[in-house]
């Protein structure tokens, strides 16, 4: 999962997955629609990336309803939080390292 040389997390290689993690890092709970709006992606595209983040254990999914409409919200798990902060540390180190 982790690149042994740089310490970067492969899961966060993708702009959308990284975006989801960035948003969830500073928001307790965000709905599917809000994520879609902020990341400017299509339903299918976002769903695929959310599933992969969930499979990695980085996301918690809460399915709820507003009236009859489904309202799915996402929040970050402890391990997701750690993976994300490790990834940022690795990015910082890379920037420092090359300088």
């Amino acid at each position: 999962m982790k690149n042994p040389i740089t310490g970067l997390n492969k899961v966060f290689d993708n702009r959308i997955r990284l975006g989801v993690m960035s948003i969830l890092a500073v928001n307790e709970e965000v709905s599917f629609n809000d994520l879609k709006q902020m990341l400017e992606v299509t339903d299918g595209n976002l769903a695929t990336h959310l599933v992969s983040l969930e499979e990695n254990g980085f996301l918690k999914v809460h399915k709820g309803f507003i009236g009859r409409k489904t309202n799915t919200t996402y929040s970050v798990t402890k391990s997701g939080e750690k993976a994300f902060s490790d990834h940022i540390t690795a990015l910082e180190n890379m920037i420092k390292g090359v300088k």
Binding site: G19, S22, V26, I88, M94, V98
Partner: peptide, 25 residues
């Protein structure tokens, strides 16, 4: 190249920052 990689990394950090800011304020 190392130069390119650094550019990418900086862009990535900027994306993260922007997303955090945009989504919370």
């Amino acid at each position: 190249s190392e130069q390119n990689q650094q550019q990418d990394t900086i862009r990535e950090v900027r994306d993260i920052r922007q997303m955090m800011e945009r989504s919370s304020r």
